[in-house]
Design a protein around this nucleic acid. Sequence first.
DNA 1: GTGAATGACTGAAACGTTTAAGCTATCTTG
DNA 2: CAAGATAGCTTAAACGTTTCAGTCATTCAC
Lengths: 362, 362
Amino acid sequence: MDAPKARKPTVKSVAIEAGVSIATVSAVVNGATWVPEGTRLRVEAAVQRLGYRPNRLARGLKTNQSYTVGVIVSDITNPFFTEIVRSLGLTLNRLDRNLVLCDSDHQFELGRKNFMMLLEKQVDGIVLIGDTVKDELLAEHIAATGSAPVIAIERDYDRPDVSRFLVDARRGAREATRHLLEQGYERLAMISGPSEGPGSTTFSRTETIEGFTSELLAWGFDVDPKMIVAGNYRYDGGREAMEILLGRTHAPDAVFVDNDLMALGAMQVAREHGLLIPKDLGIVGFDDIPGAALASIPLTTLSVPRVEIGEAIANHLLDRIADPETCPPVRRFFKTRLVVRMSSTRLQDHPAKSQSSILKQE
Amino acid sequence: MDAPKARKPTVKSVAIEAGVSIATVSAVVNGATWVPEGTRLRVEAAVQRLGYRPNRLARGLKTNQSYTVGVIVSDITNPFFTEIVRSLGLTLNRLDRNLVLCDSDHQFELGRKNFMMLLEKQVDGIVLIGDTVKDELLAEHIAATGSAPVIAIERDYDRPDVSRFLVDARRGAREATRHLLEQGYERLAMISGPSEGPGSTTFSRTETIEGFTSELLAWGFDVDPKMIVAGNYRYDGGREAMEILLGRTHAPDAVFVDNDLMALGAMQVAREHGLLIPKDLGIVGFDDIPGAALASIPLTTLSVPRVEIGEAIANHLLDRIADPETCPPVRRFFKTRLVVRMSSTRLQDHPAKSQSSILKQE
DNA sequence: GTGAATGACTGAAACGTTTAAGCTATCTTG
DNA sequence: CAAGATAGCTTAAACGTTTCAGTCATTCAC
């Protein structure tokens, strides 16, 4: 009466079509070597004819591998994270794996939900970007048998069983601070990550603060804790922090900011206050997101090898998945590179420097 | 001798632990109503004790739903796409679904690979962002029985079975063009998407060109096809296109650009050529990415409701998954909103306008 | 010409779920 | 009190794979 309610083709239908057993079909599909040319072609023809595609869910159930890795990122909108995720995803795709993306929206609660979900989905590995997954969670679930390997970036979990891919933020911070001092700035301030809640436990936060203060001390300055104000790693957080700094009786003449998003916000506020950049105020950011170079005043910043990090994570993860024994967790560091742009170059006679205040608008 | 090689707990282990059948465990886990308080608590206790978490792969295999939707995006790095994906992902998470992200890197070949992979992974739905998935592919695989619903944005696939969430780019383009003309610009040019290859079949590309030309014609200008040059929707493409335009004997005094990334690139080139923006050259972009407002000269652009689009996609997709009959594919439009900033306001006496050329640097 | 080895293939169990159908004891109803 | 309904549970078959242990010819070594 009506068209035969065709179901999706399976190994079974292919087997029947090709006149072999399902085991043979499976062998052909998975490229076993023992199948002779003749049968192989017969099976392949059947596959073609029926448009058969293996069901990866079923395969995963049997082989206990989902060929999927999960990523939990606190905010995919942060260009720094976006590029890492992209590089990671492209590399995984190349290696025939998929990436399920969870944005935890800076919330512990979502981070938790995402983490659970990924485990239930039997992901082969988990990449944590940001610090919205608390370590209790990790403790609880890595201890469980057969857990997927975990790689964290941006957070130095104190567990030997999670790999950490970190940026040498302390060295970077010292370099940035030194640069500002060399440019003749004298009242340095810093805008860092939040002091509590999500973002407060990032590796970068503590390390940059230490780098900043130790460099200042090395130059004989003393460090006023009031000059280190907490932001939230977002644009508006940079704005708020800068407002606070400019409200101080002894306002800074330079500020080192823990990420570019906040640096951009801070810069904007400074200009709204009528400050000339870099003359009245020097700014150095962190991350070197695309927007840094394109800002009204191009932003001096610490560049981080994002593509390299993404690829390294993917490769390490797959190595660990393949054989956790021969590939133990690592704690690897990536170096930053100071990219000097206009926002901090008071000494070199930059053509635009003296007039930059004219730019302030709105 | 050695520790009992504990496996991951399953319904079975829970059943044994609680002294009931696996069917009962399943019932409790899935919140069936018929299980009396007593047994329910007993089972829940067992779940707790063993740390049981259902295996979603197995569940998916049985129920034929993976609780996962796939996204293929031509470049997640484009902030416009990033925000849509984010909104989509957050909404899906809220509805207890995951999102597997595939970046096709502007390549048809990757788009194809990703599409196949997603189908094999039995995703419940596919969202196409960009045009790296060719329609032959869709034709071939949607025709197949039991295919997942597909939603496209940025590309108006000519198939009644795919939902399309589009931006009313023509109307937007007309509004942008009118705005430029009202500001007194007279030699308008346009930078659009690529004329062939990936990007060339986006809805926006043809629609903006039509909107642009029809508005010009309505004002009595005639349209020189040479004044519409193809970019690639990326920053560098905007730069190249602008170089071409500025090389023309009759260089334009205003340019409407099909997306902000290219607009930013174009703006940069114009300034490197010593042009004053908006005095010598007016620019209007499309998308209103965060960077647009923060650019050296804040960019006039057409704002698109990204968060709303992401949410709408998620909701529609889940409706379609739940019941394809009562929820047929749709073709929905979203309106743009012209956000006027400095890059195009020649008439209003903007404080910074006359000096903006000073800014050019590097 | 026997036994072993090889080549080509198949049967069936298993992976962890869901779910329809069945079963038993108790409760209702007339 | 018989017949049916219901509550509370279990059995077992699926879902689409992979894979291990066979099977059955054929070939090979001696």
